[in-house]
Amino acid sequence: MAERLYRYSDLLTTGLSREQVRRLVDLSRLHRLSRGIYAPSTDPAGRLPAIFRRLPDTAVVGMHTGAQLHGFGDARSPEVHIIVPAGESVPHIRGVVAHEAVLPVGEPVFLNGVPCAPPARCAVDLARSLRRMDAMPLLDLCLRVGACRPEDLRVEVARHKRLRGVCQARELVHRADPRAECRQESQLRLVLIDGGLPPPEPQMWVSDGNGIPLYRLDLGYRHHRVGVEYDGVSHLDRDRLRHDRSRINWLAANGWQMRHFTDLDLYRRPAHIIRTLSPLLSL
């Protein structure tokens, strides 16, 4: 259903004061699309039908907003991102970022009533433009939710040959893994790879002597019997802590060496992670 638009004068006739209108905009309960035109929405994606009434027919949703619509919006952005062919004239709309693309988008997918770039295109565009630590979780999530298959990403990244950032995108597409379960786990895996360590196995099950899976590790090196885990806020829960202690004791008794890292290690001292794990992997 198309979103209703309000003129400023219409809002005032409902009994709202100028100060109340400004307050609703500050609270993101109203969005000012252009001078004197407002739309009620708390989600940038919810404004799309109204926004597309003012855009050229060649425009499609893409980048951050496209990833969000396709279900893998790990790299969220408060703005609405659209893609238009290079040289296309686009009116200035508050909160809308237009990306001129020399590479044709292909057949759009209609979501929320508007044309959207295919999921592989959104994923590869972001993999080319985001920082590595932001792009890796997004590609993992894209595969995890089933928005793309690995071959879809490989085909799409091949189309971006010679475009800026394609080397990074090509490498990360090759590394993407749907088994990763959270952003920090994807980033920790990338830190290990960038630090020269072998790629770890995500969400690796450890079995007992009868081959029955008992415990699952965030990341693991089965041959070396080394486990790597990211400890976030959830690990401070009392019940979770009891389970973790029982798990850690069993793993240690069965020859596993576990190493745990936090946000401090991941974001401020990644070299410490590599120094800690290298001796355990005989590197």
Rank of each mutant, 00 (worst) to 15 (best):
G36P: 00
S89E: 14
T65K: 09
R94T: 15
E100I: 04
G62I: 03
A67N: 07
S34H: 10
H81Q: 12
A98V: 11
L69E: 06
L33H: 00
S34L: 12
A101M: 09
T58F: 04
V21F: 00
F72V: 00
T14V: 03
A75V: 05
A67F: 05
S28E: 12
V97E: 08
V97D: 06
S28R: 12
A75P: 03
G15Q: 00
Q20G: 02
T58M: 09
L33F: 07
R29I: 00
E19M: 06
L30T: 00
R53V: 06
V21Y: 00
R35V: 09
L55H: 12
A45L: 13
E19T: 12
D43C: 10
G15D: 01
T13E: 07
H64T: 06
A101W: 09
T58S: 13
S28G: 12
S17P: 03
D57Y: 07
G36C: 00
H64S: 06
R76M: 14
I51V: 15
G106T: 04
P91I: 11
R35A: 09
R35N: 11
I51G: 11
G95N: 14
A50I: 05
P104A: 07
R29L: 10
Q20T: 02
A67D: 07
E19H: 11
E88V: 03
T14W: 03
Y38H: 01
V21E: 00
N112T: 10
R22A: 08
A98I: 07
H81G: 10
G46L: 04
R54H: 15
A86H: 14
R22N: 11
G36I: 00
L27T: 06
R94L: 15
V84T: 07
Q20A: 06
P91E: 10
G62A: 10
P40A: 12
H70E: 10
G66T: 08
E79T: 14
R23M: 08
R35H: 13
G106H: 10
H92P: 07
I93V: 15
I82H: 03
P44C: 14
H64A: 08
I82P: 02
G95D: 13
Q20I: 02
S77K: 06
V90I: 13
L103E: 05
T58C: 12
F52T: 02
Q68M: 15
P104M: 03
V109K: 05
E79F: 14
G66N: 06
L111Y: 05
I83G: 04
N112R: 15
L30C: 02
L33P: 05
I51H: 08
A86D: 09
L33N: 02
P104H: 05
E107N: 15
L55E: 10
A101I: 01
P78R: 09
P104Y: 02
G66D: 04
P104Q: 04
H64F: 05
D43H: 09
E100F: 11
A98W: 04
T65D: 11
